[in-house]
Amino acid sequence: MKTLRTVAAGLAALIAFGLAGCGGERTDNDTGDRAGTVTGPITVFAAASLTESFTTIGKQFEAAHPGTTVTFNFAGSSALATQINEGAPADVFASASPKNLAVVVDAGNSEGRPTTFVKNQLVIAVAKGNPKGVAGLAGLTEPDVKVALCAEAVPCGAAAKAAIEAAGVKVTPVTLEQDVKAALAKVKLGEVDAALVYRTDAKAAAADVDAVEFPESAKAINDYPIVALKNAKNGAGAQAFIAYVSSPEATKVLTEAGFQAP
């Protein structure tokens, strides 16, 4: 009986802790409608390849607009589009390709025109020192080179397919990952020898991987569009964040990460 009571008390504590965690995020319901002021939480759904730069930009934005908190959900753009169309609470969507953004726009869930804020292109991420000597896409067809690609529904997978077709080679991957970071992780772990990822992802992981540039990546350049969402709880915040992404401060962060100007 005593143990039962201890367990029950422990469970109650856990639940209380969990609920407190949930509540903390969105208690401030001020949507910032007052003229000129932006405040409250802003939820941004962004492509996995934006993880590092948007995290930095989010902090800068919070510093520039006291009273705001920017929360990110980073995942494959296709997954994010599905989540938004199924009613996930988001204010802004930044996709790694216009195709996945169009899914949200076509479903009538966007607000206003999408704008393209950066471009990105693919590189081959290989283990430090390039032990398999991969020099280009043709190197990925060697039987002893294990390759991870993104699934075709994800922008990096669509770009990889376009680049591979442009090169006229046949690459058989061992796995199709759900976002670019998962593909990169397989290289970092040493489970695959190469993965097609964005130049920016390889740069962010430069301590663990080397990037091999290849000419066909110019045939598969991804535009990154950003748009405010119709069901935004913080419409003013969404507009302010989108405007900030094109500001000189944010552009500097994005350029340093390896993104190209649109």
Binding site: G76, A79, T82, N85, A151, E152, A153, L176, Q178
Partner: peptide
């Protein structure tokens, strides 16, 4: 199931 859902094909 997961991949199909992720790619938007509910």
């Amino acid at each position: 199931v997961y991949q199909t859902m992720e790619s938007g094909d509910l």
